[in-house]
Design a protein around this nucleic acid. Structure first.
Lengths: 191, 191
DNA sequence: TGCATTAATGAATAAATATTCAGTATTTTT
DNA sequence: AAAAATACTGAATATTTATTCATTAATGCA
């Protein structure tokens, strides 16, 4: 054995990639830029990743797994409906807010030439617990009896916009704002 | 004088560009692809546009102007609050649904290297009538007294998600679905 | 400590993409 | 109908960007 690969380098590459995608999208993502932002030589990128495509796809999988862990790790489906709902809403929000970079990366990934059809299908299954919860809410006659897709986007849509806004503008998300936003979401869904 | 430039060519170039951006984002936008999708030679693009950057920026301005015309052309701010609100909600929805391609283009444009800072500022002014309406609703004690930004994204967020969904999935947006979606939005905002 | 092995570098090369241009086709004008 | 002007073409060129590779630096192991 000899010199080891440096895990911190992978983290640096990921961070650099996310930063660039946030700022200028996939179309601004160039290998030399990534290397520079990550503080290493261009060639080094190819020690850790076979190609740009490999880098992008690997990062996607990494983020997806992280996202799902964050979303459901605290989740207890046996709690009362509103508690479940609130828990997931906040978790989803935190996930997006804390990691706008990652959210933007995922958004761009899904509209890029890198997207593989297979990946698209897997994506939906991961939200299954949320769909289950919505079905339950309908059965318990707590929320409106609408298509779950429609209900779901009523939740995710404002969150996505809010997190985007929080970066580009001087829009501070305080505990209070969050509470209000949650109430709007709840009022929209409840019967 | 001699041969005239063909206005239909510009339309074809725009259409091709939008189609490609919808399908694979700005990072999939290549001049030879645009030309092929528009049914012309690559060089022809350079008769109508100085460069790729010029094409993208010109198309952006074109779409923005069209968008604003569509949004406010029917709008009568002297109507009762709920009518105004409903009118704008539907107009915004139609705009996005009918032209998902355009919505996606604009979204991608704002996270691309083509974006000029100046453009960013202008953008906000164009929504002024909507901000005005929200202020009015707060004064008349019809809607929640929250930051207008927060209220606005509660409206636009779900619409954006819905239009995206309507393309990628078998999610049909009937008159009924639309009504329900509007009611959710209204319930979320109203006091 | 010194050797073997692999990480890291960045300039050189390959590949992809944007742009130009010499030649051709089409339209308008006289 | 011929000429003049300009749109159109697509292969050739220029530019940008991805990838490789010869060289150097660092690390683990005997």
């Amino acid at each position: 054995m000899a010199r080891d690969k440096d895990d911190k380098k992978i983290e640096a590459i990921y961070a650099a990639t996310l930063q660039i995608v946030l700022q200028s999208g996939f179309s601004g993502l160039k290998m030399p830029n990534i290397a520079k932002a990550a503080g290493m030589a261009t060639g080094t990128l190819y020690i850790y990743f076979k190609s740009k495509e490999d880098l992008v796809n690997t990062l996607y999988l990494h983020l997806k797994s992280r996202k799902m862990k964050g979303l459901f790790s605290q989740y207890d489906p046996s709690a009362p409906f509103r508690a479940c709902f609130k828990q997931l809403w906040y978790a989803y929000f935190q996930l997006n807010l804390v990691n706008l970079q990652e959210a933007v990366f995922l958004e761009q990934y899904f509209r890029s030439p890198y997207l593989q059809e297979e990946v698209k299908k897997q994506e939906k299954q991961l939200f299954q617990p949320i769909y289950d919860l919505l079905e339950r809410g309908k059965k318990e006659q707590i929320i409106k009896n609408l298509d779950s897709e429609l209900l779901l986007l009523q939740l995710t849509g404002p969150i996505h916009e809010m997190t985007k806004l929080s970066y580009s503008e001087a829009f501070e998300i305080t505990e209070q704002v969050l509470e209000k936003a949650f109430l709007m979401a709840w009022d929209g869904l409840k019967l």
